[in-house]
Design a protein around this nucleic acid. Structure first.
Length: 284
RNA sequence: GGUGCUUGGGCCGGGAGGUUAGGCACUGGUCUGCAAAACCAGUUAGAGCGGUUCAAUUCCGCUAGGCACCU
């Protein structure tokens, strides 16, 4: 059975270099699994592989989408499965690399088949959220899908809206689509988790943010102002600069916040993978 | 040497004689289509010694540190 080797780990841990080494070893391209590096407009703030690295080893899903097309874990699952199917014809081992936990899970285990829901329904719910408040939506969710209502974090609007849009759009409870079983995949999976001493990791993050600023992150963010309300731009490094452009705080403060929020992000990634027993951890 | 002010967690900082400050930082957790998202939770104190009081981080005194001014 062909094997997929997934290199994962917190941001700035050194996944790119490691995965390129591995790709050379196996004669494989690198398949990216990163919810932000996939956008071509965000070249500096998402720390994608450099031009030289991209030239050294073919990469997939780097800069292949525009921030203007909404992309999701569900789409990634389909796109990546199709690509793997094709690549495994001439490779017995493929290297994947990325930091987006949900995308990795979607590819490995599959997401349940929730029917597509008219985007208008979400918009209506967002409007109602503003007018009637979260309480009203939670009340409705309790009526339509008590099971999800019980399991969901009641203060988490995003989840309440998501569950509700499926209930309303399909006429069936959100929970009725969930199945416990993981999907079968026609390849075996090996997950390598890269990690470092916390202090060292935070150091690397801080330094990388400084390098991004030198590389022109501010200009890049400025050029993306027209798209700032798109989900893709709700990203560390851009959010803070947008606020800075609004005059909320000086540039220096934006840089401090970018570093802080990136550290938070790294920690949350580690938390997310903490419950995945199938990861072989490797201390760098 | 003298006088006055001051001292609080890793940091900032309001209080108040009895009850949670709050914020930042840090740490832990949740997760089925926005996931670099969204959400939840936790940790650390009152410079030292003595006094007043039923009760002191809060009031008083002394000692030590800091700041300002004076000689």
């Amino acid at each position: 059975m062909p094997e997929l080797v997934i290199v994962l780990g917190p941001t700035a841990v050194g996944k790119t270099d490691y995965s390129i080494g591995l790709a050379h070893e196996y004669g494989s391209p690198v398949i990216s699994c990163d919810s932000r590096q996939i956008y071509r407009e965000m070249k500096i703030g998402t720390a994608p592989p450099s031009a030289e690295q991209l030239a050294a080893v073919p990469h997939y899903f780097i800069g292949t989408r525009s921030v203007t097309e909404p992309y999701t874990a569900g789409k990634y699952e389909l796109d990546a499965l199709a690509l793997l199917d094709e690549l495994f014809r001439d490779h017995s081992t493929l290297v994947m690399c990325g930091g987006s936990g949900l995308y990795i899970d979607a590819l490995c285990n599959g997401l349940d088949a929730f029917p597509d829901v008219d985007p208008q329904i979400r918009e209506d719910l967002m409007t109602r959220l503003e007018n009637e408040g979260l309480e009203a939506l939670r009340f409705e969710l309790r009526r339509l899908d008590p099971q999800t209502y019980e399991s969901i974090d009641p203060a988490n609007r995003q989840r309440v809206v998501r569950a509700l849009e499926v209930c309303i759009g399909t006429g069936r409870p959100f929970s009725s689509y969930k199945t416990a079983a993981a999907r079968e995949r026609p390849f075996s999976i090996r997950k390598i988790g890269l990690t470092r001493e916390r202090e060292e990791l935070y150091d690397r993050i801080n330094r990388r943010v400084d390098l991004m600023m030198e590389a022109g992150l501010e200009e890049e963010a400025r050029s993306l102002i027209p798209y700032r309300d798109l989900p893709a731009l709700n990203t560390v490094g851009y959010r803070e600069l947008f606020d800075c452009f609004d005059g909320k705080y000086p540039l220096e403060e934006a840089v401090r916040l970018i570093k802080r929020n990136t550290r938070h992000y790294a920690k949350k990634q580690l938390t997310y993978w903490g419950r995945d027993d199938s990861i072989e951890w490797m201390q760098l």
